[in-house]
Amino acid sequence: MLKKLFNWLDERLGLTSIYNVVLDRKVPKVNWFFTLGSASLFLFLMQGVTGILLTVYYVPTPDHAYDSIQYIMNGVTFGWLIRGIHHWGATLMVLVVFLHMLRTFYFGAYKYPREITWLTGVILLLSTLGMGFTGYLLPWNQRSYWATTVGTEIPGTVPFFGQFLTNVLRGGSDLSALTLSRFFSVHIWFLPAVILGTIGIHLYLIIRIGISHIPDKDD
């Protein structure tokens, strides 16, 4: 019965050929360093799921942001767990994505024909850092407030239009409700959209070209 159902779906969706192309690929002999990309993807999905759950209670306004997080931590069943995973997952994701970049660099995996995979990877690394930067403000506590004050001050040192950059980031000359809401928006809409699209290209290229082998003496 199940077999029949599967065959019916397979005939229409091509599940077997998707499996063959995506998962049953030929891979060279590799080691554990080659799992860092999958680990990054897993962490991204985890951040996505827990992040969606956090928006159920989080409110991105200065008068309620802090209290709503206190409520998540103390008032909601398992709120501490969902936020804890998101909090630690964020740090872990920056670390893992960075290690993934180092592996690609040291193994020379960015070379022909994988330059575009590398370039999309650069976008993904920077977007991950952007997620960290924007997410840091959202708890709206002393640490996040002053960290963002400093972080948005840094582009201000750019000659001629530095002040303009700072004001664009802050949505005005000071940190305000506008800063919080635009950071929130970038954190849950703009950057996730960029990351999702770029992951699509990144994975397509990996499936299309295959992964590189560990460089040996002849390389």
Binding site: M46, V49, T50, L53, V56, G75, V76, T77, F78, G79, L81, I82, I85
Partner: peptide
């Protein structure tokens, strides 16, 4: 680990 707490998380209030 994520799914079961998520049910409590959404329903508890």
């Amino acid at each position: 680990i994520v799914g079961i707490p998520a049910i409590g998380y959404i329903l508890s209030p």
